[in-house]
């Protein structure tokens, strides 16, 4: 098993994914309501484009694509950590309700503090990750507390509790949404569905610090993740402080999910799919698996966003909707046909 996988050099995987991402980036720059020929895209990138092409590419498409890559990478890592720490193959920040918690807090924030100024103010963009983090941590706390029974967190129970928490937050959202004025209401709805339409460089800047700190830290902890994945006893055996490490890694996973949700909205299933694909390609060791997971997560959200932009053009779908349509059948497949 391991031998067959090693026949393809690891670096080839990395190169393949980087190439795919590059291809998708080029395609995505070209696709959309305004179609820009590849030659013009290139001209614009090296600085000889027309003003309108420059505006479309640098101010609208590029930040959006970068956000897609960042959010995809962050949520994929978050999912990988959650799956390893809870030893639950179905864990994903969206399915578990961590996104819903962050979303609920953001909607409360829009409702009480911001009102119509929501998308205009720059400070708001930087505060939003903090608000979302608070929501994400509260949701994660509730989920673990409720799923904890007799000293363990059973995988399916954890998911089920997550679904319940999700439903609770959603009902809470509905009640507040009804009180909002129509503009805020639509904005909140679009945001919850997971959309990166309004991505600007400010959003990129708001997301970047979190990801730059948290993703490398997760990579640094790859060994620990391997050990935790083996089970509590072997982990103690090789001298890992199981509960302490688990707690740290969970904090990272939730923080990653929260900051990504703040920027990208309710994006579900990426954290489920990416680790599974990565494991299928390069095996279960996190040192090898996490980089592939990051690349695949980014590629997945970028692709989904491009589909969302093209499929109903000139209308745009929230990317979260596209991801749910791809991800839900995969979830059912994993649930019912795999162990």
């Amino acid at each position: 098993m391991q031998l067959r996988k090693d026949k393809i050099p690891y670096s080839l995987y990395i190169i393949c994914f980087l190439l795919l991402i590059l291809l998708m980036l080029i395609f995505s720059m070209n696709a959309g309501y305004i179609q820009i020929p590849i030659a013009d895209v290139w001209e614009t990138i090296i600085g000889h484009g027309t003003a309108s092409n420059e505006l479309t590419i640098f101010n609208f498409r590029l930040p959006r694509m970068i956000i897609a890559l960042l959010v995809g990478a962050g949520i994929a890592v978050s999912g990988a950590i959650l799956q390893a720490v809870s030893k639950n193959a179905l864990a994903d920040p969206g399915i578990l309700g961590i996104n819903a918690g962050a979303g609920f807090m953001i909607v409360l924030y829009i409702f009480f503090i911001q009102g119509n100024a929501f998308y205009q103010s720059h400070i708001a963009v930087f505060i939003m990750p903090l608000v979302a983090l608070f929501g994400a941590f509260s949701a994660a706390g509730i989920i673990f507390l409720l799923a904890w029974k007799k000293g363990s967190v059973k995988p399916t129970r954890m998911i089920l509790v997550g679904i319940g928490v999700n439903a609770g937050f959603t009902a809470g959202l509905t009640i507040f949404q009804m009180k909002m004025n129509p503009t805020d209401f639509t904005q909140a709805l679009v945001w919850i569905s997971g959309s990166i339409w309004s991505a600007t460089w400010t959003y990129v800047l708001a997301a970047l610090p979190w990801l730059i700190i948290l993703i490398p830290y997760a990579l640094y902890k790859a060994r620990t993740l391997d050990v935790l994945n083996l089970g509590e006893q072997s982990a103690v055996g090789v001298g890992v402080h199981v509960n302490k490490e688990r707690g740290k890694l969970l904090l990272i996973a939730v923080a990653l999910a929260g900051s990504c949700v703040a920027i990208g909205g309710g994006i579900t299933f990426v954290g489920l799919i990416a680790p599974h694909i990565a494991r299928a390609l390069v095996g279960t060791r996190h040192q090898r698996m996490l980089p592939i997971c990051i690349l695949f997560g980014g590629l997945l959200v970028l692709t989904a966003d491009t589909i969302a932009r093209v499929i109903l053009a000139p209308l745009e779908l929230p990317v979260g909707i596209v991801l749910s349509i791809i991800g839900a059948p995969y979830f059912i497949y994993l649930l019912l046909f795999k162990n």
Binding site: L146, V165, T170, A171
Partner: peptide
């Protein structure tokens, strides 16, 4: 009904 039902659901999930 969701607000009433969720705690109940969580109890059953446990």
């Amino acid at each position: 009904t969701a607000l009433i039902g969720v705690p109940f659901f969580l109890w059953l999930a446990r």
